[in-house]
Design a protein around this nucleic acid. Sequence first.
DNA 1: CTGAAAGCGCTTACAG
DNA 2: CTGAAAGCGCTTACAG
Lengths: 345, 345
Amino acid sequence: MKKITINSVASYAGVSKKTVSRVLNNEPNVSDVTREKVLKAFKELDYTPNPIARGLARNRSFIIACLYDNPSKSYITRLQSGALEACHEHGFNLLIHPCELRSQALLDNIEQLLQTSRVDGLVLTPPFSDHGELVAFLRQKKVPFARVASVKLDDESISVRSNDEQGAFEITELLIELGHKDIAFIKGHPDHSATEQRFNGYRRALAEHGIEYQEHLVEEGNFSYHSGADSAETILHLDPRPTAVFASNDYMAAAVLKAATQMDLKVPDDIAIAGFDNAPIARHIWPGLTTIAQPVEEMTRLAVEHLIEQINQGDNGDEEQQKEPLQITLEAKLICRESTAAPKS
Amino acid sequence: MKKITINSVASYAGVSKKTVSRVLNNEPNVSDVTREKVLKAFKELDYTPNPIARGLARNRSFIIACLYDNPSKSYITRLQSGALEACHEHGFNLLIHPCELRSQALLDNIEQLLQTSRVDGLVLTPPFSDHGELVAFLRQKKVPFARVASVKLDDESISVRSNDEQGAFEITELLIELGHKDIAFIKGHPDHSATEQRFNGYRRALAEHGIEYQEHLVEEGNFSYHSGADSAETILHLDPRPTAVFASNDYMAAAVLKAATQMDLKVPDDIAIAGFDNAPIARHIWPGLTTIAQPVEEMTRLAVEHLIEQINQGDNGDEEQQKEPLQITLEAKLICRESTAAPKS
DNA sequence: CTGAAAGCGCTTACAG
DNA sequence: CTGAAAGCGCTTACAG
């Protein structure tokens, strides 16, 4: 079981290893006959190029790292699966790198990641997508990156998002159309740009339907179940009690539902509840949560796809070629479940 | 900003690059004075060795891949985080590789992973931990691997598990002590060895407490929420209805809870419910689920730790040294919540 | 269209 | 204790 290298293939096919290399990389200037011979040798010897040797010669690793700091396991898993899909399609592998946004040593941590792994690019997921310092750092280091769910759409880097503002607008509008006027709102984590977007959608819906914005109906959460429970404590004891609660994500909405149930409130008759994200919990609890589904996998898949494209481009020495700015916005989708049925009207 | 390589360090420190290499790898036979000089050069030049070059020379990648095929996002995330911890501690990185157990091409898929990534080792998580064919394949290829939550404890490879049988025993015993006699059981996915273990624990508890095993109280699930809902449909319509349900994981238990609530049954008064795993959903729903917490992160961390040890060992040419079999069993812990309170008795 | 030489940044024998 | 040479398996200029 000797190791099969480019040399074995070259001598088997009776050509130089440079020619083998040409075939390997789909370079032009190889006669069809020669190419066939080499391809046949690949097959018969069951040859696969050693990515580490390639990496050393071309200063590449064929690995992409995914950065995240997110409490939602299901969100993380979805991010990963979209990223993996794009990676595998292009012969890349995916490294995962959770790290803390608030950490003092964030940039050191990332620098170390770059040093020890020599990844070819980075996917930034929320809340890193909007981390100005990190983005500047990567630009300065000339490390290719793509951003998922970023809101600050500048014209310099790849970014794929979904329309959170519109999603929040639609869900608020639904509640309004069901007859609700006193609609409480629970904000997400201030570091996530989605937090502001969702809040904006809520306010726009109120405004467009001529409903007055009531500041005391708005609670500060941080996307965690726990923060949802705290907010629910306040909201459900308001007098008069709002007839609906729109939480910025499903975990917080689930916490509101639990609190309401413990207080013997009927959902949605006594109080309607809506969430955001369509996390698994939204359909695992009873009543199921009305929510907004985002194409998380697709967002990440697209981001990584364009990232890889950019990486391969830089490789071709086409540095001159203007990389056109790439900003994509995908649609979010309203999903109605039992937590917001007909209002008591 | 020139690239700092081993050569830069060597000339800066006034030694040969072999000496730098020695310091890098903590080899003996370097005088203290020389070592200091080199270490100082590292600092001042801000040098980090290129892992790709190291990898090529030593035929190593410093990357470990984690294999999984599991519907539970929270379980996956916990696995990953334990694995990452161990990896980072030893200068390794983690690649994730979900794949389908039932896929015809499983071995091809793994072989391709090995070819394209050249990982140094593999962590097998359930249901791969007990996949005989895969294990044989890896042995034959001499790829180091470690298994998490494997039950077939042979003496040849690293394996870390938790005591599922005992956990299931304890939870069943709790139900019995609460006065329940007709305790329904929902099995997990047949490909997971945990399924059998948990079932065994259930039966042992019944037997030790002199309660007759009733086959019609046992349903076949597959760990998914959906399968739990199907099983609940049957169980909750039995006549007489069992007074307790023990589902092999929390997702299925949550489905039972939802079904019971929809039928206006009070939990735990009309029916007690218990799950397994202590997934986030267990505390996110109301009433919270009594369940068993496993140290998933710790299991994976230990598995990867020993895997890396084995990898580094093989590297030292200590092939002769008997690798002692490593099987570790950690304790699972009973967590009581509202879904199983005092029985009506 | 094809190839011989040098190099990517390290490590592994081998000398001394 | 230290170093010069060769090599890991590829690719990048450069010739022809």
